[in-house]
Lab assay of single mutants.
Amino acid sequence: TTQFTVHSPEQAEQWKEYAKQKGLEVHVQKKNGTWHVTIH
C-alpha cells in the first residue's frame, strides 16, 4: 500500500487515472484542504 498527500484535486485525479491504468485500487480522502491518496 502506498499512501501520500497531494494538495490539489487535479493531482488526486492524475493518481486515480494512473491507478486505473495499472489495475490498482485507489482511495482518495479529502481532509483539511489536502487529499490523502492511498493506492492498494
Rank of each mutant, 00 (worst) to 15 (best):
T1I: 14
T1R: 10
T1V: 14
T2A: 11
T2E: 07
T2V: 15
T2S: 11
T2Y: 15
T2Q: 12
T2K: 12
Q3D: 06
Q3V: 13
Q3M: 12
Q3N: 08
Q3K: 12
Q3A: 09
F4T: 03
F4C: 05
F4A: 02
F4Y: 07
T5P: 05
T5L: 10
T5V: 14
T5S: 08
T5G: 03
T5E: 11
T5C: 11
T5R: 07
V6M: 03
V6C: 05
V6S: 03
V6P: 02
V6T: 06
V6W: 02
V6K: 00
H7V: 08
H7G: 11
H7E: 12
H7P: 09
H7R: 07
H7F: 12
H7T: 13
S8T: 14
S8M: 04
S8C: 04
S8H: 06
S8F: 06
P9F: 15
P9Y: 15
P9Q: 15
P9H: 15
E10V: 08
E10A: 09
E10N: 05
E10G: 06
E10T: 07
E10W: 10
E10I: 07
E10Q: 10
E10F: 08
E10L: 08
Q11H: 09
Q11N: 05
Q11M: 12
Q11Y: 05
A12L: 13
A12M: 08
E13F: 07
E13R: 10
E13Y: 08
E13W: 09
E13N: 10
E13S: 07
Q14W: 15
W15D: 01
W15R: 00
W15T: 01
K16L: 13
K16D: 03
K16I: 15
E17M: 07
E17T: 08
E17L: 10
Y18L: 06
Y18I: 06
Y18R: 03
Y18T: 03
A19N: 01
A19E: 01
A19Y: 12
A19H: 02
K20L: 12
K20N: 09
K20V: 09
K20E: 10
K20R: 12
Q21M: 11
Q21T: 09
Q21H: 10
Q21W: 09
K22Y: 14
K22Q: 14
K22T: 10
K22F: 13
K22G: 05
G23Y: 03
G23E: 04
G23L: 04
G23D: 05
G23R: 04
L24I: 07
E25N: 10
E25I: 13
E25P: 05
E25Q: 12
V26M: 06
V26G: 02
V26N: 01
V26R: 00
V26T: 03
H27M: 09
H27Q: 09
H27N: 09
V28N: 00
V28G: 00
V28C: 00
V28T: 03
Q29Y: 13
Q29G: 05
Q29A: 11
K30S: 08
K30D: 08
K30P: 06
K30M: 14
K31M: 13
K31G: 10
K31Q: 12
K31F: 13
K31E: 11
K31R: 10
K31Y: 12
K31A: 09
N32Y: 06
N32H: 07
N32C: 06
N32M: 05
N32Q: 07
N32W: 04
G33E: 08
G33F: 04
G33D: 11
T34Y: 13
T34K: 13
T34H: 11
W35N: 01
W35Y: 10
W35R: 00
W35L: 04
H36K: 07
H36R: 08
H36P: 00
H36G: 03
V37Q: 00
V37P: 00
V37T: 01
V37D: 00
V37E: 00
V37C: 01
V37S: 00
T38R: 04
T38K: 04
T38S: 06
T38Q: 05
T38N: 03
I39G: 00
I39L: 10
I39W: 03
I39T: 01
I39P: 00
I39H: 00
I39F: 06
H40T: 13
H40L: 13
H40R: 11
H40D: 06
H40I: 14
